[in-house]
Write a protein that binds this DNA or RNA. Structure first.
Length: 940
RNA sequence: GCGCGAGUAGCUCAGCUGGCUAGAGCACACCCCUGAUAAGGGUGAGGUCGAAGGUUCGAGUCCUUUCUCGCGCACCA
């Protein structure tokens, strides 16, 4: 028997089954960088419609983590898919460089290396500069590291010119935003209690706080009433001794700053005799309080309304003054006594009460957490934390302490130093959210809520509610910090103690910073910094301004102000387009970058900096727990790249329902690897059947047939139509930022449409037809078109593999899929018979019949003839492809049949080349048993 | 405490405005192929849709209550 294997057109390709991504992806990176894909793409899209994505700056500290991997991958999928659409999509990655985390780290290192000691010997300016130089080096180092890691994720962008918040031109652009806000009357300086980190001697933003459980001493303290008669009148009783008001606090150290007691007018209060002393507390809390203190004898003498208590006065237990009882709505009956210790210098609500009641914003605590000289002598200079016990002791001895106990509650901590923070009133710079802008009288809060309501799209949609809620309740933005590593707020003090800063002076300093960087603030005199400032041309300049007499103030900006100005420093400064189409970050950025970009942009420009916001959830481990290094459930990006590679990691990212929290586990990447291989193998099979196929190009005709010549009833037309459908679906999904749908559609297409149906059905003709048989060339033409389209659709998801397939398809190392656009097959007018649905149903029915036949001993489908019922002749036009669709030798269509059936053909001869028993098999001139088709193919 | 989201086969998820015996992929089991071969094809078994009530002719889908998980916010004087 002749051996026919050599006469077949068996698959052949240089596209390997094994991807070896860890080895090959870096080679792709190198190739792309050599041909400057990003630059080429920019040039190729010049003049096309702009679509600007704006990157939120990660912090230049440490290695990127798995969350960055997802975030940057999603961003890259957006940019690449928009670009593939033919749009002009510049992408400038950026880094947040200033701020406490770096300064903290650098300081720690300096202390450890002994360098910090030398700082004491130099001037404050020199000291700040020494720290800043170290910080800048530190930031630079990590930008370099992270840039490499991000590129390893196969993200495309202008990595040659990223933005850095510490770059001079960036700093100047941020100051310009600040100048605009001043012009609009939105910036003010005021004393206000702010979260204060004693450890770092700086005010902290909400975003810099973490709440952790902490055990504090909680005390119930009696404040003696000033007038016994007044209390008697309030309660309508007569007393032998002066009663007290009982307050509760977990921060005894704030008692020296106590300036009022707050009650709620709506509650009932009782005058109680406890262990022989009279005191006042909320009626509903008498049992709870006395019970907690294990008091034996409790006697309620009288009751009255809270409103009657308002206006009474009491003596401070250890400071020589009397203070009022006031009303406050926030007083509740959940904890304490219903009488709230109020210190306007030490709490937000206390502060508000203080403003309302005309109390002083008194704060006797210095920035290092010790008392100043306005407190009683025994507390002066003492550290507040140690003062807690001291004060309690004092109260105990003076008889003011009713009861004390340990109390566990969650308490704000400085997120870096992990130390508890305090509320402390200090002079700070604020951006007011309730101040009318000069431009239109609208407040930032109003404008922001309006914008969120009307002018911004949210993915997922509930982001809108979330951001709106935050904006509605947010306080004024404290933008000043008392640190060295940051952008100085360019304000000066005049000899009379007043502060000098106008839009024009800010711009003058901005110009100095643009030229010499913000280091200039520490290296130059006010006169040098203001060299470009002319007071005579500044209508807002104070009279008799003497620049030479100014001294610099040393507050720096909250880093969020800098990051929140990126729309100006990057999008506008580089003429990329403003506002951005999309900001895409983790859901924590509702309170961070989203909100703090929105406010400056609205303040300065009157419009939001983004048209759409996409948020994704956070990575958790497979049990739903937060990932953290201390728990040890993290996955290192570097390991991931080595293990599965960027394409598989990105393929996994694209499969996620990113709006929720995302469970991550190494196993999931392995699963993604499996489905990646399915896609890869499908492409490989398609490519391997194109080894002898020269495509039609502009230059040459090649072996391709006209797509329009493919009959609508052929399986090729069906495959092509399915591809067009896929392309439409994937493009739509990308546009809707629904990457998951794109992923699933592509996977199903490869797994089902191609691998299970089309490839399986066309194997026979590809292998056994004559090389240049029209039927074979038609299939090859379609397969070529499919790989061409598919690699473009895959390019945003798996940049390396897509390009590998594309180059293999075109057999050229000079081409690159990332410079292409989608094929847009739906515009080609491909015709496909609408009865294909019925054909596929018949196929399933045929398989079912085959299963039955298998039970009766039939094993190889090629030994079978399947009869399909075809009552209305609907299947007739597809008869030619039906045997291949079922993988059997013959199909009979029977208008009279009601069910599919199978006939065993093993009694008939089998073609020695194609192994089919199609009824034409007979002995040929070469001595072999061949079917007509095979005989024709080898010319015997 | 308030708000948001989620709880559907072992795993990852679909199930829009309520309507035929609740779907997909993976994994699993069985079978086939050995000319995509550390590949490919076919078939199948898996779920009382977190729980309890209710509305309805009919609910995974609406309402109420409740449990679990996650997130955010606030409070913690």
């Amino acid at each position: 028997m002749p051996d026919y294997k050599a006469t077949l057109n068996l698959p052949k390709t240089d596209f390997p089954m094994k991807a070896s991504l860890a080895q090959n992806e870096p080679l792709s990176l190198k190739r792309w960088s050599e041909i400057d894909v990003y630059g080429k793409l920019r040039a190729a899209r010049e003049g096309k419609p702009r679509w600007v994505f704006h990157d939120g700056p990660p912090y230049a500290n440490g290695s990127i983590h798995i969350g960055h991997m997802m975030n940057k991958s999603l961003k890259d999928i957006v940019v690449r898919s928009r670009s593939m659409e033919g749009l002009d999509c510049p992408y400038v990655p950026g880094w947040d460089c200033h701020g406490l985390p770096i300064e903290h780290k650098v300081m720690t290192e300096m202390v450890e290396s002994g360098k910090a000691k030398k700082l004491d010997e130099i001037t404050p300016d020199q000291r700040r500069m020494a720290v800043r130089r170290e910080c800048a080096k530190y930031a630079e180092k990590f930008i370099k590291l992270q840039a490499g890691q991000m590129q390893r994720l196969l993200t495309i962008g202008d990595y040659a010119n990223p933005y850095r918040t510490m770059a001079p031109e960036y700093e100047a652009a941020a100051l310009e935003v600040f100048a605009r806000l001043i012009e609009e009357g939105l910036v003010y300086r005021d004393k206000k209690p702010v979260h204060w980190s004693v450890a770092n001697r700086t005010a902290l933003a909400e975003a810099e706080l973490e709440y952790e459980d902490r055990v504090d001493l909680s005390v119930y303290v009696d404040f003696e009433a000033e007038s016994r008669e007044a209390v008697e009148r309030a309660f309508g009783v007569e007393l032998d001794a002066t009663p007290s008001f009982m307050i509760w606090t977990t921060t005894p150290w704030t008692l020296p700053a106590n300036l009022a007691i707050a009650v709620n007018e709506r509650y009932r209060y009782s005058l109680v005799r406890v262990d022989g002393a009279e005191t006042i507390m909320a009626s509903d809390l008498v049992a709870k309080v006395t019970g907690a203190a294990k008091v034996e004898k409790v006697e309620v003498l009288a009751e009255t309304d809270g409103a009657k208590l308002v206006g009474l006065r009491y003596r401070h237990p250890f400071v020589d003054r009397t203070n009022p009882v006031v009303h406050a709505e926030y007083v509740t009956l959940e904890d304490g006594t219903g009488l709230v210790h109020t210190a306007p210098g030490h709490g937000t609500e206390d502060y508000r009460t203080g403003l309302k009641e005309g109390l002083a914003i008194y704060c006797p605590v210095r920035e290092d957490g010790t008392y100043d000289d306005s407190v009683p002598e025994w507390l002066r200079g003492k550290d507040i934390w140690s003062a807690n016990a001291k004060i309690v002791e004092y109260l105990r001895e003076s008889g003011h302490l009713f009861f004390d106990h340990k109390f566990s509650h969650s308490y704000p901590h400085d997120w870096r130093s992990k130390t508890p923070v305090i509320f402390r009133a200090t002079e700070q710079w604020f951006v007011g959210v309730d101040r009318p802008a000069k431009r239109d009288g609208a407040t930032l809060r109003h404008a922001a809520v309006e914008a969120v309501e009307r002018n911004v799209d949210f993915v997922p949609s509930w982001g809108r509610n979330r951001l709106r809620g935050m904006l509605e309740s947010r306080p004024d933005w404290c933008i000043s910090r008392q640190r060295a590593w940051g952008l100085p707020i360019p304000s000066f003090a005049r000899p009379d103690g007043s502060v000098f800063m106008t839009p024009a002076s800010v711009r003058a300093v901005a110009a100095a910073f643009a030229a010499r960087g913000s280091d200039a603030w520490f290296l130059e005199t006010p006169a040098q910094l203001l060299a470009g400032y002319d007071a005579s041309k500044d209508p807002q300049a104070p009279k008799d301004l003497d620049v030479a007499a100014l001294t610099k103030l040393y507050d720096i900006f909250d880093v969020w102000f800098e990051a929140g100005s990126s729309w100006n420093a990057v999008l506008r400064a580089r003429n990329l387009g403003f506002p951005a189409e999309l900001y895409l970050e983790g859901s924590d950025q509702h309170r961070g970058w989203f909100q703090l970009s929105l406010l400056p942009s609205l303040g300065a420009m009157g419009v939001p900096p983004f048209k759409r916001i996409l948020t994704h959830g956070f990575m958790v481990d497979k049990n739903g727990r937060k990932m953290s290094k201390s728990v040890g459930n993290t996955i290192e990006v570097e390991d991931l790249m080595k293990d599965v590679g960027a394409d598989v990691a990105r393929w996994w990212v694209s499969s996620l329902a990113y709006e929720d929290d995302i469970k991550v586990d190494m196993d999931y990447f392995r699963v993604a690897g499996e489905s990646y291989r399915k896609v890869r193998n499908t492409i490989r099979f398609l490519l391997s059947n194109l080894a002898d196929f020269a495509p039609r190009t502009v230059e040459e005709k090649g072996d391709a047939v006209e797509l329009s010549s493919i009959p609508p009833t052929s399986i090729d037309a069906w495959a092509l139509a399915e591809t067009a459908k896929l392309e439409r679906a994937v493009r739509d999904a990308y546009a809707a930022l629904d990457f998951r749908s794109a992923h699933l559609a592509i996977y199903d297409f490869c797994n089902d449409t191609m691998s299970a149906i089309y490839c399986a059905a066309t194997k026979d003709r590809l292998y056994c037809d004559r090389k240049d048989a029209p039927r074979r060339r038609a299939t090859q033409t379609v397969m070529f078109t499919i790989v061409d389209a598919l690699s473009r659709l895959l390019a945003p998801l798996m940049p390396h593999t897509a390009d590998e397939a594309f180059r293999s398809l075109w057999r050229s190392d000079g081409c690159c899929v990332h410079l292409e656009t989608y094929r847009k097959l739906d515009e080609l007018g491909i015709r496909c018979d609408e009865r294909w649905g019925a054909v596929l149903q018949a196929r399933s029915a045929g398989f079912a019949a085959m299963e039955v036949a298998k039970r009766d001993g039939l094993e190889n489908p090629l030994d079978a003839e399947v009869t399909l019922p075809d009552p209305n002749g609907e299947l007739r036009p597809f008869l030619a492809d039906l045997p291949d669709l079922l993988g059997v030798s013959r199909v009979v269509l029977d208008p009279a049949a009601t069910a599919s059936s199978v006939r065993d053909l093993r009694a008939e001869p089998r073609c020695e080349r194609s192994w089919k028993r199609d009824g034409t098999v007979r002995a040929r001139s070469d001595g072999g048993l061949l079917s007509d088709r095979d005989a024709l193919a080898i010319g015997v």
